[in-house]
Amino acid sequence: MESFFYSVNATAPVFLVILLGYILRRIGILDEHFVSVCNRFNFKITLPVMLFVQMTETSLRDNFSGGFVLLCAVITVLSAVGIWIGARIFLKDRHMVGAFVQAGYRSSVAVLGMALVTNIYGSGAVVPMMMVGSVPLFNVFAVLILTLEGPTHEESSLKENLLKAGKDIVTNPILLAILLGMAASWFEIRFPLMLERGMGYVADMAMPQALVCIGASFQGTEALKKIKPTLAVTFIKLMVLPGVFLPICVALGLRGEYLAAVLVMQGSPTTSTGYVMAENMGGDGVLASSAVVSTTVLSAFSLTFWVFLSRSFGLI
Score class of each variant (00 low, 15 high):
Trp84Ile: 07
Thr56Asn: 06
Ala206Trp: 06
Asn9Phe: 03
Ala251Cys: 06
Ser36Val: 14
Gly215Trp: 08
Gln209Val: 14
Phe43Thr: 03
Val132Lys: 06
Tyr258Ile: 08
Gln54His: 11
Ser272Lys: 06
Thr147Trp: 04
Thr58Lys: 09
Met205Gln: 05
Gly124Glu: 04
Ala110Asn: 10
Gly256Ser: 02
Val244Asn: 08
Ser36Trp: 10
Ala251Glu: 06
Glu196His: 12
Leu70Tyr: 14
Phe52Cys: 03
Ser310Leu: 14
Leu16Tyr: 15
Ile214Asn: 00
Leu144Asp: 05
Leu259Pro: 00
Gly21Ser: 02
Leu252Phe: 11
Asn161Pro: 09
Glu154Thr: 13
Ser185Tyr: 06
Ala10Gly: 04
Leu116Arg: 01
Phe34Ile: 10
Trp306Phe: 14
Leu60Pro: 02
Thr221Asp: 10
Leu303Arg: 04
Gly82Ser: 14
Phe100Gly: 12
Arg25Met: 15
Ser65Glu: 11
Gly133Leu: 12
Arg88Phe: 09
Glu160Gly: 03
Ile45Ala: 09
Leu224Cys: 08
Val132His: 03
Phe90Asp: 07
Leu16Gly: 12
Ala80Lys: 10
Leu16Ala: 10
Ala125Cys: 07
Arg311Glu: 15
Gly198Thr: 13
Met265Arg: 02
Gly113His: 07
Asn119Thr: 08
Gly198Ile: 14
Pro13Ile: 13
Val170Gln: 02
Ala291Leu: 01
Leu238Tyr: 08
Pro151Leu: 00
Arg197Phe: 13
Leu137Gly: 13
Arg190Ile: 07
Asp284Glu: 02
Val202Cys: 11
Gly220Phe: 12
Gly124Thr: 05
Ala216Arg: 04
Gly82Leu: 10
Leu137Ile: 15
Phe218Glu: 01
Ser294Trp: 10
Phe313Trp: 09
Gly21Lys: 00
Ser79His: 08
Arg94Ser: 13
Ala177Val: 10
Pro48Gly: 00
Val262Ala: 01
Ser294Thr: 15
Asp93Leu: 05
Phe301Ile: 14
Phe235Asn: 01
Leu287Phe: 06
Glu2Asp: 07
Asn39Ile: 15
Val49Lys: 15
Trp306Asn: 02
Leu246His: 04
Ala261Val: 03
Phe301Thr: 05
Cys213Met: 13
Phe191Cys: 11
Glu2Arg: 08
Ile145Asp: 04
Asn280Thr: 09
Ala10Asn: 09
Ser185Leu: 07
Leu315Thr: 04
Asn9Gly: 08
Val109Thr: 13
Phe52Met: 05
Leu195Ala: 14
Pro48Ala: 03
Val97Lys: 07
Glu149Asn: 09
Ile178Phe: 02
Val101His: 04
Gln54Pro: 06
Ala291Thr: 01
Lys225His: 09
Val81His: 00
Ala12Thr: 08
Gly253Pro: 06
Gly67Glu: 11
Arg197Ala: 15
Thr270Arg: 00
Val250Asp: 03
Asn280His: 04
Ser294Cys: 13
Met50Ala: 12
Lys167Tyr: 12
Leu78Val: 15
Phe15Ala: 08
Leu259Trp: 00
Val127Cys: 01
Phe64Pro: 05
Thr56Ala: 05
Ala251Tyr: 11
Met205Tyr: 05
Leu163Glu: 08
Cys249Phe: 05
Leu91Ala: 05
Ile89Asp: 01
Val292Ala: 06
Pro128Tyr: 02
Phe15Pro: 03
Arg255His: 12
Leu224Arg: 15
Val143Thr: 01
Val74Ile: 14
Val264Phe: 07
Ser7Val: 07
Arg88Gly: 15
Val212Leu: 13
